[in-house]
Nucleic acid binder design. Structure first.
Length: 272
DNA sequence: ACCCAGGGTAACT
DNA sequence: AGTTACCATGGG
């Protein structure tokens, strides 16, 4: 990986297969927007970034310092996805999925944002999920010169279900409040989820009302980078019924979450 | 009115 | 422990 710093941006070359647009807009995160100048922009962990990709080169409007300390990790640029995809290619369907959706990386998102976002995602569609999250940030996040931050669990823990009415999140509002309270109080222990095996995190997250297996898996995968987590939504359910009636192939062992992300996007966009 | 969407829960065998 | 009703919201 080669990083070159300019006045107000850096370029990154020679990185592992990575597709910026695909990674930020394949259903794992909901806050990235494509501006008219063809740059993706978002506020992540309180930091604002504009980014674009052209001719195998990344343009990140940030400092080399912030890149090394935040974005490099967030975009998982030091992980060898080439090798991972070669492993997954042992299965014929995953060979197609990883080829046709090449460059998807798992984004290392903030645990609370991932949890809260995927609570909102339940029985919902992606455009509306994005709308609810945008209203959540505008109503309860911190205003910055570039937009609103994602509100903290501590902030949301002070609110009531009625306070969330403007979000139009429906029955999910009470789940958001319960999650915020349990995370803010430490009843759901994020630090321990980070260090303990995944089974601890599964049980811990499902102490929250409205968090079942699927939302827990998404939180563990995108918020805690537990890449063996395997969220099964309606699309992955279809994949399993159509292609893997006897379960996932051996080559996915330990990296089920990454396989899932390719299969999810592939099934939604490349099939039929 | 009917369908679907990155589901969850409770009450059953 | 697995299945099966039932729950819930807004957009098409």
């Amino acid at each position: 990986m080669k990083v070159t710093a300019f006045e107000n941006y850096i370029t990154v070359e020679d990185y592992a297969p990575f597709n910026l647009g695909l990674s930020v807009d394949c259903g794992q995160s909901f806050r990235w927007k494509l501006k008219e100048n063809n740059r993706w922009c978002a506020i992540v962990r309180g930091r604002y970034l504009e980014a674009s990709e052209n001719d195998g080169k990344l343009f990140l409007y940030t400092s080399e310092n912030e890149f090394n300390e935040l974005w490099r990790d967030y975009f998982d640029l030091d992980c060898n996805y080439g090798e991972i995809c070669r492993t997954l290619c042992a299965d014929e369907h995953l060979k197609k999925a990883t080829t046709e959706c090449a460059g998807i990386h798992i984004l290392k998102q903030e645990p609370w944002e991932a949890l809260c976002s995927f609570i909102i995602s339940q029985n919902n569609n992606i455009p509306r999920i994005k709308g609810i999250i945008e209203r959540l940030c505008e109503a309860f996040g911190d205003k910055t010169e570039y937009g609103f931050t994602f509100p903290t669990a501590q902030k949301l823990a002070t609110l009531t279900v009625e306070d969330l009415a403007p979000l139009r999140s429906g029955f999910r509002a009470k789940y958001i409040i319960d999650a915020a309270q349990k995370v803010a109080s430490g009843e759901v222990d994020f630090e321990k989820i980070k260090t303990e095996p995944i089974e601890f995190g599964r049980a811990e997250l499902q102490k929250i009302k409205g968090v079942g297996a699927k939302v827990a898996e998404c939180t563990l995968l995108y918020g805690f980078y537990k890449i063996e987590a395997f969220p099964v939504d309606v699309w992955v359910k279809r994949i399993m019924a159509e292609l893997y009636p006897n379960g996932l192939p051996e080559c996915t062992k330990g990296i089920e979450g990454i396989a899932q992300q390719y299969l999810f996007h592939w099934r939604r966009t490349c099939i039929e």
